[in-house]
Amino acid sequence: MPSCSKENPPYPEAPKLTLVSSTPSIQRASRGQSDWSALMARAQDGDREAYRALLTEVEPYIRSIAIKYLGRSAEVDDAVQDVLMTVHSIRQTYDPTRPFGPWLVAIAHRRIIDQLRRHTRHKTREVELSNEHETFAEAPANLFTEKSAEHALVGAIDKLPPDQRDAIRMLKLKEMSLQEASRASGRSIAALKVATHRAVKNLRKLLKGEPS
């Protein structure tokens, strides 16, 4: 067995390799734990600046843990926010004489694993709808109730007095602003407002009278 001391490297001709961490946040985690501990102690006493500095600094670290479990998915953000909120709600359990890193990592692990578990449970219960679940192959054919409600509304608008009908068409259906509608119809803004108000009232009456 060759010895691997500094004086006698096993492969003297090999180029010297330096280990470079790809996640600087983890490096910071080990270096800055005492800082984090001090920041958390100040945050517990109500120092908001220290608290903001702490949360901003630990966020990438929590994110790297979340990515390890969840991959780079949309759930990572949810997980990070959940961990931050849990840290907030149980911050009184941190004892500043103990290291901050293990405390934070334990919370992050439990919350993220909890989220994974919840997510898997949801997935096993949910089935994505495919075309076979539809009654008819044509998409509009399956929207029967929506269509009939739409028809009823169009019919009711047609039955309104002309000024109210125009007001509701311009302001609600074409989504014009009050100024634009006023310019287009030559009526004052106040008159348009009153007409719309009355139109909505009348429509409500008309649609209630007609069972959809």
């Binding site: 945050a43 517990q44 006493d45 109500g46 908001r48 608290y51 903001r52 949360l55 931050l84 909120m85 907030h88 911050r91 009184q92 359990t93 941190y94 004892d95 500043p96």
Partner: peptide
């Protein structure tokens, strides 16, 4: 969270 950070009593 920072806005809501009132002092807490350690356990």
């Amino acid at each position: 969270l920072v806005d809501a950070a009132v002092p807490v009593r350690r356990l």
